[in-house]
Amino acid sequence: MTGRTKTMLAALALAAGIAALVLVPLLLNRYGLYILSMWAIMSIAAIGLNLTLGYAGQVSLAQGAFVGIGAYAAAIITTQGWPLVAALVVAVALCFVIGWLLGYPALRVQHHYLAFVTLAFSTLAYLVFRNEEWLTKGIYGITGVPRPTLFGWPLAAPLRFYYFCLAALGIVFAGAWWLVRSPWGRAFMALRENPMRAMSLGVDTRRYTLMAFAIGSSLGGVAGVLYAPLVEFIDPTPFTLGLSLNLLMMVIVGGSGFLFGPLLGALISVLLPEWLRFSEGLYLIVYALFVMILLAWSPTGILGIVDRYLARRRARAASAARSAAMPEALP
């Protein structure tokens, strides 16, 4: 298979995937649309975490908290009558700045301490959501979060809101695709592969790591901004440490460091109760077993398995081509 046809095939697969995501929902009921919207939103948060984890090699245990910050920003701002885009700006800025402030001292001290600091932050954020009643309405939550309108076009209906989420996912995905191919993205990966070498080549490692973490965090905020109008209600209970751990699992299960990894991981996690309907109440147990077995087998997740399979086939094809090209060399 030549490189050209491979690119063609990949483009075709991508087009088929997009077509399915656009067309299949036309046949779905409200539940299906809601679940798919949830998938798109969780995918955005997971793509952000994948930048931090998969490309810059930093463990963040606070992505759920950033989703919470985004969701609260959206709920508070839009219930005051402001448009969702204002919430988006606030959420992205807030998450970026908080990410920077968290990461700066943590990374100054030692590399893996970012995980501990974000763990603490995640729990603190939950306490603030719950306790600061004047701002967040506390444990009662904020009801009546409106769905947005886009250029005078109301997006309240489930199908329209799904397309809105899907479009957001498309933009974020394209942005991530561009980012990892940009010089920045290469610097991120250099950091992950060999921080010492990156430093000796003149990459300001701390700044790039921070940048990756802050951008990843603000994507968590973007996901939150969509989450609030999807559910139309926000209270602190979803944004515990559990959500952060869950997002981390999505990225690892899908395949960290692969662009499509988070999308796949989020699909498995969000549709989990559906996949495992046969197991009745046992689906969390089955999921946990699946994650353990998968990681023992392939630490790079599902896409890691696919990747290795393709690499093996390529290698076999290459050696076959080599032996075909020089028959005389053989005795």
Partner: peptide
Amino acid sequence: ADSQSNPGIARAQVQ
């Protein structure tokens, strides 16, 4: 159906 004690998922399951 399991709401996982989470309003977002409760909404999905009720739907």
